[in-house]
């Protein structure tokens, strides 16, 4: 029995080492002129909120923590990033049309108001991503204002 446990332990250790060679590609793109921060006048307080609570999964630049390099955590983080960027990628803001931009802005406000975003798992690991009521209000004021500006610019 002891021998069996020892073999099982060795197999698990070897397996854990082997899967480290199957890390997903990191989301570390260079900043482009299409990024929302380049395209729009974003107030500093809103920029801080977006950087702290959104950009890791909704842009081409993720700030990784040390344990994000360890598989299987790396796979989970990568899934969140792929899914997040599919929904909205702030790095591609400049390529979106006005309809999609307003839709995205409305959704940002709706999701944070309903506390669906940022996701709980992210907030547990990034305390600065927990949004206060004032931050949610600031974000929604900005999304509304930017939407109005986008309509006005057409």
């Amino acid at each position: 029995m002891k021998k069996l446990l020892r073999i099982l332990f060795i197999v698990v250790i070897i397996g854990a080492i082997v899967i480290q060679f199957f890390r997903p590609e990191k989301n570390l793109g260079t900043s482009t002129p299409d990024h929302i921060f380049e395209k729009e006048q974003v107030p500093e307080n809103v920029k801080t909120i977006l950087k702290n609570a959104c950009m890791d999964c909704h842009s081409d630049q993720t700030n990784y923590l040390w344990y994000h390099n360890i598989v299987p955590v790396a796979w989970m983080i990568n899934d969140h990033i792929v899914e997040g960027k599919e929904e909205l990628n702030f790095s591609e803001w400049g390529q979106m049309d006005t309809f999609d931009k307003i839709g995205a802005l409305e959704e940002i406000c709706r999701e944070v108001e309903r506390k669906k975003m940022p996701i709980k798992a992210y907030v547990q690991m990034h305390k600065e991503a927990k949004l206060t009521e004032e931050q949610v209000a600031a974000l929604c004021t900005w999304t509304e204002k930017l939407s109005e500006e986008l309509i006005g610019a057409e």
Partner: peptide, 14 residues
């Protein structure tokens, strides 16, 4: 409002 309407329409399309 116009903005909310466009947002809702975008959501429907999606």
């Amino acid at each position: 409002s116009k903005v909310k309407k466009i947002g809702a329409l975008r959501h429907i399309a999606e």
